[in-house]
Design a protein around this nucleic acid. Structure first.
Lengths: 194, 194
DNA sequence: TGAACTTGATAACATATGTTATCGTCCGGG
DNA sequence: CCCGGACGATAACATATGTTATCAAGTTCA
């Protein structure tokens, strides 16, 4: 997944803004597929309103990998950079408004950015953040029980739990919807709120 | 984790070789800690002989994340780049011979490399490979059963199974040693070799 | 060589989690 | 206004996996 230059590095806005004119605005309903697993990513996606998830198919059983919300951007990075099929599908959860920037312009943009002094340092930082994110996800999967993962989600990213339908949460946590229900009811008993 | 410039990109050897003189050679026994979880990575490690693993501690219960062998190099990337504590411990599995290149020289090396035309493209490729690796690990954890993960390991990286003690494999697969034994004995029944 | 340690297998039992089925609620479109 | 679909809770049962304990076969090292 890519990052969004604009929000993360204001000093790069000037570059980003040059490409605004090449973006396409889309208003799309829930469950619209923006990139299909197995296809090659052709555009960078920026979310103005709504939310999307990335997932992969496992015998008709979706596994959600990540959620994205307003003012976040994404693309299948490996697919983008190496021109290989995407591991994931990208799909809206709610009806959304997104902007699409075709790959050729992203490549151009990256090329322009490579002229910026110390851009490599930025790039290193960006990637090490992404790597950190994925290794943390991995570690959490290895180390934590689904119940712990749910509690982490609740405390660290409560907006996800509030906004996203529960079966997507279950698929993100790596458990069945039934078991997530169990976890919730167990937690509810432990900590009654009044 | 970093990559090893030298083996992956021969055209960069000339840069790498300039730093050979700053490397320290170490002969160390099994179970030697090269970087401790929570400390800041101070050097890049290159393995001449032997093998090492990275793991994190979970209530005295190690969880192995990755294995490295001859002619591979590693460092805690995030720790390196951002000067933050490493999420993992790096430890030898067998008695090994390693070379250490202090961080300051790696930084210098990276700076020199940033002068190379199109180095950014290389860097993008390097990082997208790393990202792909971690996302594949993550996907495998989410999608596959421990038995499937073991079979994947057997078919794709049999040298690991042959060389690494079984309890490290179990910890890498995310199961108890007892359960890995069960998996092995189950597979042995299914496919008798004679 | 003997003792301590490491490695691995197995059994018995406990717990966690998946699967299937059923039910209730809510919500949006005809 | 009603109906169907999406969403979520729960029960009953099946399976996967962890935990603890025990044993056996190497390995290392004094």
């Amino acid at each position: 997944m890519l990052f969004h230059f604009k929000t993360q590095f204001p000093e790069l806005n000037v570059f980003w803004d040059k490409y605004l004119e090449f973006q396409t605005r889309l208003e799309i309903p829930a469950k619209t597929v923006l990139l299909e697993e197995g296809k090659i990513s052709q555009q960078y996606i920026f979310i103005e309103k709504g939310c999307v998830r990335t997932f992969f198919n496992n015998n008709g059983n979706d596994k959600t990998v990540q959620f994205f919300f307003e003012n976040e951007g994404l693309a299948s990075l490996e697919s983008f950079v190496n021109n290989i099929p995407s591991q994931f599908t990208i799909e809206t959860i709610e009806s959304s408004v997104v902007y699409l920037l075709p790959k050729q312009y992203v490549t151009q943009l990256l090329h322009e950015l490579s002229q910026v002094p110390d851009f490599m340092q930025l790039l290193l930082q960006i990637f090490s953040r992404r790597l950190t994110h994925y290794t943390k996800e991995l570690v959490s999967f290895i180390r934590d029980t689904p119940e712990e993962r749910y509690q982490n989600l609740l405390s660290e990213r409560p907006h996800i739990v509030q906004r996203v339908p529960q079966h997507y949460i279950a698929s993100y946590l790596g458990v069945s919807t039934v078991h997530l229900s169990r976890i919730k009811s167990k937690l509810a008993k432990g900590k009654p709120h009044f």
